[in-house]
Design a protein around this nucleic acid. Structure first.
Length: 171
DNA sequence: CAGTGGATGCTCT
DNA sequence: GAGCATCCACTGT
């Protein structure tokens, strides 16, 4: 999905960072089976799974796999291409429009109304170099390398450890 | 630039 | 009642 374009009401951009979650995954919302919150994860692929994070943010996922799979991909960052001014306004005038899951939710004006609806997702044109790292901000199954990102994009939430900024050493 | 803590509400134990 | 798939402001180097 890296390089694909994701839009909500014509606003959005190119997916440059994702994380994968599936049912046999202690870090996944679907790990303990179907609940009212995660039931969309067990439905058809290509729909939005939207949940509230830390009581404040709305995080946007795309359901994956056959029905019953309980798998989804968290959209962690977008490279803004469509409706940039709209997203800037939604982000309170900031310039980091969608470089993080909470920011993506804000830029797309995501909310419960989106949950379970089909995602507007189109394949990308140019080929991108995809790097994998471990996932971010979780406490369980931290070792699974299921974060995917376009290393050349400046819009990602955090640079991969290896390719990241060189650490300054004092002489 | 790195580290810390507050905001805030829902889900599940 | 604890724990979160987070962000931002603020602090100290």
């Amino acid at each position: 999905m890296i390089g694909w374009t994701l839009l909500v009401d014509g606003v959005g951009g190119v997916v440059v960072e994702t994380e994968a979650y599936r049912q046999d995954d202690p870090a996944s919302h679907s790990y303990s089976g179907m609940t009212p919150r995660n039931e969309v994860m067990f439905g058809p692929a290509g729909r939005f799974y939207v949940y509230r994070s830390y009581g404040i943010h709305w995080c946007v996922n795309i359901v994956c796999g056959p029905p019953g799979e309980g798998a989804a991909v968290l959209i962690r960052a977008l490279e803004p291409t469509h409706g940039i001014e709209v997203m800037r306004a939604r982000r309170g005038g900031r310039s980091d429009l969608a470089s993080g899951p909470g920011k993506v939710g804000q830029a797309l004006a995501a909310g419960p109304h989106l949950n379970g609806t089909p995602a507007d997702l189109e394949p990308g044109e140019r080929r991108r170099r995809v790097v994998t790292t471990t996932r971010i901000g979780i406490t369980r199954a931290v070792e699974r390398p299921w974060r995917f990102l376009d290393a050349s994009s400046p819009e990602v939430s955090r640079r991969p450890p290896v390719l990241g900024r060189r650490r300054r050493t004092s002489a």
